[in-house]
Simulated assay, not measured.
Amino acid sequence: MKKCHEIDYQVVGEPMAEAAVITLDPGEICISESGAMLWMDPDIKMSATLTDGSSPNNGLAGKLFGAAKRIIAGESAVVVQYENVGKKRANVTFGAPFLGTMVGLNLNDVGGEIFLQRGAYIASAYGTSVSISFAGKPMGAFFGGEGLIFQSIKGDDVVVFHAGGSIIQKDLKPGEHLFVDSGSLVGYTKGIEFDAELSGGIATMLFSGEGIFNSKVTGIDNGGTVFLQTLPFSKLCMEISNSLPRKN
């Protein structure tokens, strides 16, 4: 039995400045991170809530616990719902916080769950669970450069997320692995193990500019998919900071 509302989406705009248009039938709802909405049709009713709709029978304690998990995952406590209260189809459009690429993904195509870097999530169908997940092995969590906590997005319909620059999708079979620069890993599916390894010898670690550890993603079980970004926001900020004039 389907748990999430069934929504349609379209990515519009120019490369590096894209937006995602979600179309709702009458009575349908989508949810988003706070502040992601750009514009919407008059028949869309917007409301702030503590629930993403994945556990509609939760009491106040359950809703507060869900809000706390979203905060830990790098999102706001509040989920914004957009409901089509009209009699015809209506649109709501979402934007990204910085230049890059919008991606729409049906969670049914990736086993019902994807793990996203903090801040990557934009919007999804009502009923999608937005929670937290620990990032693989302890070495990967503490030294892989991606952080200890990822967002766990679980459901059976569409999720929209954002990547800096362009997005590259890599499918890894069981036993295949890939070394990923810090910050370049946007997300991964089931069938991927996340870890970290030393980036090389002493000279390489100190002078390559790539840090002491690299993230390592490996296909396990039946294999999985990783989503990579070509312009991590952290690198962009670093380049901007380095180009600013220094005070004497």
Rank of each mutant, 00 (worst) to 15 (best):
C237I: 10
K247G: 14
I71Q: 06
E193P: 04
E197P: 01
T93R: 10
S184G: 09
G219V: 15
L107S: 00
Q117W: 01
N84M: 03
H162Q: 09
T204R: 11
A203P: 01
I192Y: 13
E197M: 10
N108I: 05
G112M: 03
A77N: 09
D25T: 11
G66K: 03
A196R: 01
Q169N: 05
T230Y: 03
H177I: 02
M16T: 07
G155A: 06
G119P: 07
S215F: 08
V103S: 12
G201M: 01
Y82E: 13
G223N: 05
G119R: 07
M40Q: 11
F65R: 13
K63Y: 03
S32T: 14
L178F: 09
V80N: 14
F233I: 14
G155W: 08
L244I: 11
A203K: 11
V186D: 04
L236G: 03
A61D: 08
A90Y: 02
M37G: 02
D8F: 10
M102A: 01
S243V: 13
A123D: 08
N91K: 13
T218A: 06
A90P: 09
G136A: 11
L107K: 12
S34C: 08
A135M: 12
V80C: 11
Q151K: 13
E83W: 01
L228C: 02
D221G: 00
A20W: 00
P138N: 13
E113L: 13
V160G: 01
F65M: 09
E75G: 06
E28M: 12
D195S: 13
S129E: 05
Y188R: 14
I44A: 04
A163W: 00
A20N: 09
K154C: 04
L99A: 15
S184W: 04
F233T: 05
P232T: 06
D181H: 03
A17C: 04
F65A: 03
I7A: 05
G175L: 01
L206G: 10
M102Y: 07
P97H: 02
D156L: 14
G74R: 02
S34L: 15
R89I: 15
S76M: 12
Y82M: 09
A135W: 03
S55G: 06
S208F: 02
L228D: 00
D157R: 13
D8A: 13
I240D: 06
G155F: 05
F94D: 04
Q229Y: 15
H5W: 11
S208Y: 01
S129W: 12
I22D: 07
Q117V: 12
E146V: 06
G100K: 06
P245H: 04
I212T: 09
D8T: 14
D109T: 15
E197Y: 11
G145Y: 13
S166N: 02
C30R: 05
G223H: 02
I31F: 10
V186P: 07
N57V: 14
K235M: 08
K3V: 09
V226Y: 00
C237W: 07
T230K: 00
E239V: 10
P138W: 01
V21F: 00
D171E: 03
L228V: 08
T230V: 08
